[in-house]
Amino acid sequence: MTSRLLWIVAALVIWAALPFFVPRNIADLLVFTGIYTIAGLGIGLLLGHCGIVNLAQATFYGLGAYSSAYCTVMLGLPSIAGFVVGAVISMALAYLIGRPILRLTGYFLALATLALGAIASALFFEWDWLTGGTLGIGGIPKLDLFGFVLDRPSRYYFFVWIVAFTCMAVAHNLVGSRTGLMLRSMRDSSTAAASLSVDLQALRTQVFVVCALFGSLAGSLFAHHASFVSTQSFTVDRSISFLLIPVIGGATSIPGIVAGALFVTFLPELLSKLGDIHQILFGLALVGVVVLLPDGLMGAYGRLQRRLAPRRSGHDH
């Protein structure tokens, strides 16, 4: 227990010191890692605990980003308004769309979410009076906390990660609660869960709404960081990137989501130093992780720990 506490303290010290020691571009990537962690958490909840593949997270991410952009730039409202409007619209949409489509299962449900993502992407494009279309909306102000402007990645880093940790705590509580048990029973045997009077559809819809909320929060954070939003950031490709986060990191593990987010933000950046071949190499790395580590990076870590544990206990005796 003491060693676990020590680990946590050490991790927190490293987390707090990191932005002061790394160059600005790395701090910037760490901000993106935090943002992607929040968006990936929602996908992880759906994938790991409900067995639902969601390919529409970029929709909610976009709704959050456009709400923040529109409220601050066009309407001149305070930043918090954008966060709230984005969250409310995203949750309402997730509820309205989730109720009918979450009756589907497996590939059909994945395709339905893909369709939702494609429709939203087309609407972001077409409704240029609202979204600015290809040209987007620029000049989104940096977040201001009681006069302290978060105008540098090293400052914004703390804000984003505090939001990310809060979302992780929410996800952790949800998974550990009675609802989490119901979710897993539904994932492993929906018939058995239904026979125990678990309302499958209501439960799935609730998690879908939480996923949308996380997506919207991440989108609003992104808008204030980049100061600019355009349709290019909210395509189906982005939804696939978000889906990769739990797939790579490990869908049932919350630290796995952070590992997955680090993978999708840092690896392309590192590989880009190798020239135009970097996208092919990233694809190969993805295939490598999925084939060699089917339960993700955290799954592999868990297996490694289990393999080492008997040896350790052997030494103890």
Binding site: P23, D28, F32, L135, F222, A226, S230, Q232
Partner: peptide
Amino acid sequence: SNPDTALSKANDLIFGQKVVALLGPSLTA
């Protein structure tokens, strides 16, 4: 062709590599 990546690259070039000016990018976003 990704504005998020462009932003990271700009941060790297300006603050990491200390360039005096920036040329590009190719796309409006």
